[in-house]
Each structure stands twice: as structure tokens, then as C-alpha cells.
Design a protein around this nucleic acid. Structure first.
Lengths: 186, 186
DNA sequence: CCAGCCCTATCTATCAATTGGTAGGCAAGG
DNA sequence: CCTTGCCTACCAATTGATAGATAGGGCTGG
């Protein structure tokens, strides 16, 4: 149960942080959810910063894998792009949660540096993926792929935030549709 | 110094919340900044929820006044729309802060109900203002003014969040420009 | 083969710091 | 003299973190 406990902690911490942020993480609640004592969490993650960094890193890795899978499943780059917003939609469907890194971005000033680094890496990975699909699909000239990718991602993060504030997935769906109408999303 | 102290508390709390959120607010730091004791804050705002609600309400009122002023100063609705992103930009310039209500939206699950109500009211006021300008300027058909207004606001909030995560106003500027290129913003 | 040892993972118990909140006093001024 | 506004002095709960004990598994030397 050792490696499994560590995984369980990471999973629980991720769920908690997607709903309450880094500041909302606390060892006792986490331990209770996993079924161990808080001191045991310190064994696997000495400090809260260590835990936060591990959670963010794992989140980033999972997201990268998820994007690769999306690209592999989709018939072409354009189809993959069209399905990109689904990832953020899923978070809302799961207990009205939001993208971990969007939450952490808000908490910028209170984040340990290693955690912030993972947040930025997550965003860069998303932008890179989006830019690649945009270029491949020819949605915009290659020279504009990266700025457009950034705009897409920021807009989607904003849509998720607005939807979360009202706890309504429909808000998200309407916003995404609005972005498409306006020509921001393919 | 009574009414003035209350105002000073509200102002300090607003600055703090724009950088650390509702959860990051705490009576002692606030008191120290204002130059009084934490018990005195409880005199003006009995509970933290009261303080949070008052801060959010004041923020919403100030924003509404600011929007009216923007509209009054601008030669026409389109010019007012074009200057709308400046408000969010100013927050970034002031200590890399962000829109209070965007932060609170993230903290949705931990917000006292009166605070959340103010957050939603702020957003509705912004959407209403944007929709009015959009309709008046004829940027989109009147029937699409409101969804477009929501899309604009969400996208701008997202841009501010991304810029904050990197503590670079330039990120915000690039994103806004990207939105204009894509046709989301006028 | 097995006794001794160490490493892993967890526990109990406790700490110091932080934090929201309360009780009661005190000074000024209308 | 009573209200307003602030203060001192607490309190209880929460939280990140540490110290030290323990149980079990596996490896090693005799």
C-alpha cells in the first residue's frame, strides 16, 4: 500500500486543490480522505510546498498525456482542436471543479516557486499543443498560431471561471459557442 | 476618524483580496495596514463574511460608477467598448493584482453566500453594460449582444488571469490584441 | 536456515503559529 | 451620561510540522 498511498494522496490533493486552491489544501482533511494520519502525508511529502509541486507536476503530466491521446484519437488536427474545450468542461461536470492551474494562477502571490513553475509549464504545454494543431489544420497562418493559441487558452480558462461562479455547465457551453461565433475558436 | 477608518478598512481589504482572495484576508494584517487593532475591525464588520460582502459590494458599486464614467467620457459606444479592457489592465499594473470578482469566482466553494451574490451581481452589471454598448454601436445584432458581451468579459478575465500568472502586463496586451485579431473584441 | 538488522510506512502525541471571534474596559464628545 | 470607536486581553479551533515509537518485510552474515 506504499506506492498506492502516495498515489491516493496525490489524487485527493488534486481534487481538493481544483476546488479550494493551494491555500485550501490541508493535511488533515487530505489524510482523512485517504484513510491515514496527517503525519503520514509528511512522510511522502515533507512540506506543503513539496505536496503542491508534486500535485501540479502530476497534473501537468496527465494533461500532456491527455492532449496526446486527443490528437491520436481525432481524425485530424481540426477535429482535435474542436474537442479541446471538452477537457475543461469535464472539470466543471466533476463537482464544479476548475483547471488546477487556473486556480493556482489566481493564487500567484502565495505560491511556492516550484509550484508556480509547474503552473507556467502546464500553460506552455497547452499553448504548444494548440499552436501545433492550429498550424497543422491551417486555421491561421503559422506565424499567428502561437498568439492565437494563447488567446484560445486564456478565453477558455475565463469561460470555465465564469461557469464555475454560477455552478452551471450551460454557462460554459454558451461561452464556447460565443467564441466560435466570434471566430476565436474553430 | 470613524467613517474614515471604515473606508480605510474597505480599501485595504479590497487591495488584499485582489492579491490573495477571500481566504487570504485576515483581520490582523488588515488592522496593521490601517493602523488599528484587529478587534476594531470586528466593530465595523462583525464577521469575516460581513467584511467580504461589504468589500465585494463596494467593488461592484465602484465598477458600475467607473463604467458609467467611461461611457460618459467616450465619444460613442464603440470608443467606450474599445477602452473597456483598460480597467482590467490597471489592476495588473497595480501590484499585479486581478479583478476581485475573478478571484472570488475561483473561490466559489468557500464563499459565504452574500459574497457570492455580489460577485454574480458584478458580472451581470458588466455584461449589461457591454451588451448595451455592443447594441448601441451595432457591433453585433441586438439579439446577439448579450451572449457576445458575456464572451468578451470571460475572455478578458481569462487574459488577466494568464497575465497575472506571469506577472507581465505585456501578456495581457498581447492577448487582448489576439482577441481583436480573431474578431472577439472590437 | 534463521537471528539480527534495517528500511518503509504508518501511528501517537505534541508544538507553535495563525486566525476568527469575544468580553470588557476606557476615552472623547454631543 | 450614553453612544461611538478603539483598545487590551483572551479563547478555541485550525494548521503545518516534528519527535519518537512500532509493526512488518526483506536482506545478510553466521
Amino acid at each position: 500500500m506504499s506506492a498506492s498511498a502516495k498515489e491516493a494522496i496525490l489524487a485527493a490533493a488534486r481534487r481538493a486543490a481544483q476546488a479550494h486552491g493551494y491555500g485550501g489544501l490541508n493535511f488533515r482533511d487530505l489524510a482523512a480522505e485517504v484513510g491515514i494520519k496527517s503525519a503520514s502525508i509528511h512522510y511522502h511529502f515533507p512540506t506543503k510546498a513539496d505536496l503542491g509541486a508534486a500535485v501540479a507536476q502530476r497534473y501537468r503530466e496527465d494533461a500532456a498525456a491527455s492532449l496526446e491521446a486527443l490528437r491520436a484519437e481525432a481524425p485530424d488536427a481540426l477535429a482535435a482542436l474542436r474537442r479541446y474545450p471538452e477537457t475543461f468542461r469535464r472539470a466543471l461536470l466533476t463537482g464544479n471543479r476548475m483547471c488546477l492551474c487556473s486556480y493556482l494562477a489566481a493564487e500567484h502571490d502565495d505560491l511556492p516557486e516550484p509550484v508556480l513553475r509547474e503552473v507556467l509549464a502546464f500553460m506552455e504545454a497547452n499553448v504548444a499543443w494548440l499552436a501545433r494543431q492550429l498550424a497543422e489544420a491551417g486555421v491561421v497562418p503559422a506565424s499567428q498560431a502561437e498568439p492565437r493559441a494563447r488567446a484560445m487558452m486564456a478565453a477558455i480558462a475565463g469561460a470555465q471561471l465564469m461557469a464555475r461562479s454560477r455552478a452551471e455547465v450551460a454557462v460554459y457551453d454558451t461561452l464556447i459557442e460565443g467564441y466560435r461565433q466570434a471566430g476565436l475558436l474553430p
